[in-house]
């Protein structure tokens, strides 16, 4: 499973792994979208996104924060992403998903707490992510 839910006293802690950087970012996005518990998907939507950050960890957290802001502001849920560019510190992406009626869970934020994008022991990439609920 690309992401697993772990215990955290106040929030939701995810452990995300991916064979590639793209897979890590995509599965983290799916973990976030699932945690928001969207209600009743409607028409398909896409959103463009371009970001730069200081390092890979900040880039992932900022990417998810941007997706969260768009999901809540536009009432859309993104379950997939296609990257035109994805490097250590820069990305250009198209988010893909659907308009939704709303969300049952109020994910307040994607935090930097415990996040550390690193190469996994058996290859690939991994990180923890803590969502503020």
């Amino acid at each position: 499973m690309p992401y697993r839910r772990l215990e955290h006293t106040s929030d939701l802690r995810l452990r995300v792994t991916g064979a590639t950087r793209e897979a890590l970012f995509r599965d983290a996005l799916r973990g976030l979208a699932a945690a928001m518990r969207p209600r009743q998907a409607r028409a398909a939507v896409t959103r463009e996104l371009a970001l730069e950050a200081a390092d890979a960890t900040a880039l992932l957290v900022d990417f998810l924060s941007e997706a969260l802001a768009l999901m809540q502001a536009r009432r859309e849920s993104y379950r997939d992403v296609r990257f035109t560019a994805l490097t250590e510190r820069r990305l250009v992406a198209t988010l893909r998903g659907a308009a939704v009626e709303g969300f049952d869970a109020d994910v307040k934020a994607v935090t930097y707490h415990e996040a550390e994008v690193a190469a996994g022991a058996g290859g690939g990439w991994q990180t923890h992510l803590v969502l503020d609920l």
Binding site: S65, A69, A109, V110, T111, Y112, D132
Partner: peptide, 13 residues
């Protein structure tokens, strides 16, 4: 929530 997100990002930078 977004004000906090924006400024935690900004201050990290």
């Amino acid at each position: 929530h977004q004000v906090a997100t924006d400024f935690i990002r900004r201050m990290n930078q």
